Amino acid sequence: ERVRARYDYEAQNEDELSFKKGDIITVLEKDDGWWKGRNGKEGLFPSNYVEELE
């Protein structure tokens, strides 16, 4: 599954994923509120910062 970033997100910890608004992220795992994904790097990000691609 792929999602698009709705906002910029700056990683707060080294296991998190940074991205810019409009970036496409491949979702690897979904957990409550935090998803694991890849966009060149791999890490956790808040699920409310992304939207599913149509």
Rank of each mutant, 00 (worst) to 15 (best):
R6D: 05
W35D: 05
V50L: 03
F45A: 01
D32G: 15
W34M: 11
N48C: 15
K20M: 10
W35C: 07
N48V: 10
N13A: 10
F45P: 02
K41S: 12
F45I: 06
G43K: 01
V3Y: 12
L17P: 03
N13I: 04
S18Q: 04
K36Q: 07
E42G: 05
N13P: 02
K30H: 06
S18T: 11
A5V: 08
W34V: 04
D8E: 06
V50Y: 00
D8L: 00
K30V: 06
Y7E: 12
K30N: 04
E29S: 15
G33N: 14
L53I: 15
G33Y: 15
K36M: 12
L44R: 13
I25P: 01
D23F: 04
G22H: 08
P46H: 06
G40A: 09
V3I: 05
V3Q: 03
E54M: 12
W35M: 12
P46D: 08
F45W: 03
D23Q: 08
D32T: 09
Y7M: 15
I25N: 03
P46F: 03
Y9S: 03
Q12M: 12
S47P: 14
D31E: 14
K36A: 05
A11C: 05
V50A: 07
K21T: 10
S18N: 07
Y9I: 01
F19E: 03
E51P: 03
R6T: 09
N48F: 12
D31H: 15
S47I: 08
K20W: 06
E29H: 14
N39G: 10
G43C: 03
E51S: 06
F19N: 03
Y7C: 15
G43M: 02
F45Y: 00
G37A: 00
S18E: 04
S47F: 08
S47E: 09
K30M: 07
E16P: 00
K21R: 10
N48M: 11
D8I: 00
P46Y: 04
R2F: 11
D15E: 14
K21I: 10
E54T: 14
E54D: 13
W34P: 00
E29R: 08
N39V: 11
E51C: 08
S18F: 02
P46V: 02
S18K: 01
F19K: 01
K36D: 04
I24K: 03
R2C: 13
T26E: 15
N13K: 12
G33W: 13
A11W: 03
F45C: 02
G40R: 08
Q12E: 10
G43I: 00
E1P: 13
L44K: 13
G22P: 01
G37R: 00
K41F: 11
R2G: 06
T26D: 09
R6N: 08
E10H: 09
Y49W: 08
L53E: 08
A5Q: 02
D8K: 00
E51V: 07
D31I: 15
W35T: 07
A11L: 03
V27R: 01
W34K: 07
Y49V: 08
G33P: 14
G37C: 03
E16V: 00
E1D: 14
F45N: 02
E1W: 12
K20R: 13
R2K: 14
I25W: 00
I25T: 02
V27T: 03
I24A: 02
F45S: 01
D23K: 01
N39H: 13
T26H: 10
S47Q: 09
W34S: 06
D15V: 08
K41N: 12
E52D: 14
R4M: 09
L17G: 01
R38Y: 15
W35H: 05
E29A: 14
E1K: 12
L44S: 11
N39W: 10
Q12V: 10
R38E: 12
Q12A: 11
E16F: 05
D8M: 00
V3F: 07
E54K: 12
D31V: 15
F45K: 01
G22S: 05
D31Y: 15
E54F: 13
L17V: 06
W34I: 07
V50E: 04
D23Y: 01
E10A: 10
K36L: 15
E54G: 13
E52T: 13
L44I: 15
L28V: 10
G43L: 00
F19L: 08
T26R: 07
E14F: 09
W34E: 05
G37E: 05
A5P: 05
V27H: 02
S47M: 12
V50Q: 02
E29V: 11
R2E: 12
K20N: 09
K21E: 10
E1Q: 14
D8Q: 03
S18C: 06
S47R: 10
K30F: 07
L53C: 11
E10Q: 12
G37D: 05
L53A: 08
Y9F: 08
Y49F: 13
Q12S: 09
F45E: 02
E10K: 08
N13L: 06
A5S: 04
Y9A: 02
I24R: 02
R6S: 09
D15F: 15
Y7F: 14
F19T: 01
K20P: 01
Y49H: 10
R2T: 11
V27F: 01
K30C: 07
S47Y: 09
P46A: 04
F45G: 00
K21G: 06
E16T: 00
E51R: 00
Y9K: 02
E54A: 13
G22I: 05
E16Q: 13
D8G: 05
L17E: 01
D8N: 07
V50W: 03
D23V: 03
N48W: 15
D32Q: 10
K41W: 08
K41I: 08
E14M: 09
R6K: 15
E14Q: 11
G22R: 01
V50I: 10
Y49T: 08
D32F: 06
K21F: 04
L17K: 02
E29N: 12
G40D: 12
N13E: 08
D32S: 09
Q12T: 13
R4H: 05
D31Q: 15
S18G: 06
D31A: 15
S47V: 10
L44M: 14
A5K: 03
Y7Q: 13
G40M: 09
R4L: 09
L17I: 12
E52L: 13
V27A: 04
Y9P: 04
D31L: 15
V27N: 01
E14H: 09
Y49M: 12
G40S: 09
W35N: 06
D8H: 04
I25C: 03
E29W: 14
N13Q: 09
L17F: 02
D15Y: 15
S47D: 07
E1N: 15
F19H: 02
E52R: 12
G33C: 14
I24G: 02
L28N: 03
L44E: 02
E52F: 12
A5N: 02
D15L: 14
G22C: 08
Q12H: 09
K20Q: 09
F45R: 02
E1I: 15
W35K: 00
R4G: 03
F45Q: 03
Y49I: 08
P46T: 01
E1Y: 12
G37F: 00
K20H: 11
T26F: 09
E16I: 00
R38M: 12
E52I: 12
D8C: 07
D31S: 15
E29M: 12
R2Y: 10
P46Q: 07
N39E: 06
G40N: 10
D32V: 07
E14K: 11
E10R: 05
F45L: 04
E42F: 07
V27D: 03
A11G: 11
E54Y: 11
L17D: 01
D31W: 15
V27K: 01
E54P: 13
A11R: 00
R2D: 06
K20E: 08
R2V: 12
E42I: 15
R6Y: 05
R2P: 04
G22W: 00
L44D: 04
K30Q: 07
E54C: 13
